[in-house]
Design a protein around this nucleic acid. Structure first.
Length: 471
DNA sequence: TGAAATGTTGGGGCG
DNA sequence: ACGCCCCAACATTTC
């Protein structure tokens, strides 16, 4: 046994199953203490005391705590600066090692580097593992040894290299979790109130057991994923597992195994989306400048002419474009948005309202329950055509055509814009052509009950093309 | 993981 | 019967 007592520090891997660092910690240590730190560097910057993410993390941790209590242990919660907290705690309980799964966000990398250095100064080992991706940033390289910048060759390489590592045993010896009686002094209050946050309503269940349930629930629809994934109102059209990937209540390996174990065109398409996730994690790791700037740096020179007023109307879902407004109101209400809608609203903000993609990215970052820096940044830059392997700048969504294509019955729109519920399925995508008589008949006066369009798509399209043309 | 503009074809109405 | 126009419908190119 290498270590008498170790800390397993949970971050975005809130599960006991198939957890690489936890498995290692319990194999190499006689006794393991599970610790989560509410990081004040992050919490202090959350603007909303009702932040759904806090409830999601809290609930996931609570379930985890209940599970380990059945094993006679408990989860320790700390609150403060992670470096200070982890070091202080390690000293108090005389831990000789800290185990973590690696995180590739710039802040996390910096944090872990500092904790590692501090640990090593005290003679405490710091062991980190690959867990949240299949391949890390520097694992898949082109023939010339550079990081991939194009998705398709990356994906081919990814599929080629995908090997037995997927099937390694990452079970943990949970018998080795530290007994509760030794932890008593360290168990802190579980209420969010004490951290200065309120409980928020979540549109879905979080936690490890809910994650497994959701995956099982999606299984029958996996074969049709390729056909259904673009239609927001098709039940189970998408897996809705993004939240679980974000908090690590499911392992990425288990999802890849799930796709491979149930082969079909749908599963293949779905797997490809998981590869996009690895791709963007890799991009963030290898090209951290994307956090602040365009992946294609020449586009940093662009002066986005969009106004704050238009941005606000977009945020509120008051643009007069039904599909946009329905999507944004759904988002504001639930903290979740269907991927097709994310693309449509992102295209609209950047290419119709000419607002800097970073504004939209920030709004998503604040409100997405499944917010992940790598995926969110990658997705926004893809839509704005500033990103790595992004769509070409002249590919501009027509919000009305997209609405007709992907919400043909208008039922998604009606779910979130009840004021439009009496419009026909032909007219609901663009109600503004309705005459006075029709408006009275459907009980929706445009400009009063529902806003008039704030821009003209065909005009904005030309403006956007001109904006990008010179680069 | 588009859409608009432009080009081509072919059928039908009509003088 | 024939040429002409109109305009879907489809194809290609351009952004």
């Amino acid at each position: 046994m290498r270590f008498q007592r170790s800390i397993f520090w949970l971050r975005r891997d809130l599960r006991l199953e198939d957890n690489v660092a936890l498995s290692a910690a319990t194999r190499f240590s006689k006794e393991v203490v599970l610790v989560f730190v509410f990081d004040t560097n992050i919490l202090d910057r959350l603007k909303d005391k009702n932040d759904r993410r806090m409830t999601a993390i809290h609930n996931s941790l609570l379930e985890l705590d209940q599970k380990v209590r059945k094993k006679g242990s408990a989860l320790v919660l700390l609150h403060g600066d992670p470096k200070k907290e982890i070091l202080g705690f390690a000293k108090r309980i005389k831990a000789s090692a800290v185990f973590v799964n690696r995180d590739y966000e710039p802040y996390a990398k910096k944090r872990d580097k500092a904790v590692r250095t501090a640990c090593n100064k005290l003679g405490i080992a710091f062991h980190d593992y690959k867990d949240q991706v299949i391949f890390e940033g520097n694992e898949l390289l082109t023939q010339s040894g550079a990081a991939y910048k194009v998705f398709t060759p990356y994906k081919n390489k990814w599929l080629m290299e995908l090997n037995a590592c997927l099937y390694q045993d990452h079970r943990s010896k949970l018998k080795r979790l530290a007994p509760l009686k030794q932890l008593d002094r360290e168990i802190v209050d579980w209420s969010l109130k004490k951290l200065g946050f309120d409980y928020a309503d979540l549109c879905l269940k979080v936690g490890e057991s809910a994650a497994k349930k959701q995956l099982k629930f999606f299984l029958p629809d996996l074969p049709d994923y390729d056909k259904n994934r673009n239609y927001p109102v098709v039940p189970n059209g998408t897996s809705r597992l993004s939240v679980h990937l974000r908090y690590g209540t499911l392992s990425i390996r288990s999802l890849v195994r799930f796709a491979l174990a149930n082969p079909s065109l749908g599963a293949k398409t779905w797997l490809s989306e998981l590869i996009w996730r690895d791709f963007y994690q890799m991009i963030l790791d290898q090209f951290p400048h994307v956090v602040k700037g365009c992946f294609k740096e020449k586009y940093d020179a662009i002066k986005w002419p969009g106004t704050q007023k238009h941005f606000m109307l977009w945020c509120q879902g008051m643009t007069g474009f039904p599909i946009i407004d329905a999507a944004m109101r759904c988002f504001n209400k639930t903290g979740w948005m269907h991927n097709r809608l994310r693309m449509i609203v992102a295209s609209f903000l950047t290419k119709d309202l000419l607002v800097d993609w970073r504004k939209g990215e920030g709004w998503f970052a604040r409100n997405l329950l499944d917010f992940d820096l790598a995926a969110n940044n990658g997705g926004w830059q893809w839509c704005a055509s500033t990103g790595c392997d992004a769509q070409p700048y002249f590919r501009i969504f027509n919000p009305i055509t997209q609405s007709e294509k992907f919400d043909p019955e208008g039922s998604f729109i009606k779910n979130f814009l009840p004021e439009l519920k009496n419009f026909s399925k032909k007219q609901i995508h663009w109600p503004h052509v309705a005459n006075q008589e029709t408006q009275e008949k459907v009980d929706c006066i445009l400009g009063k009950d529902y806003p008039k369009p704030i821009v003209i798509h065909s005009e904005q399209r030309i403006k956007f093309l001109n904006l990008f043309k010179s680069f």
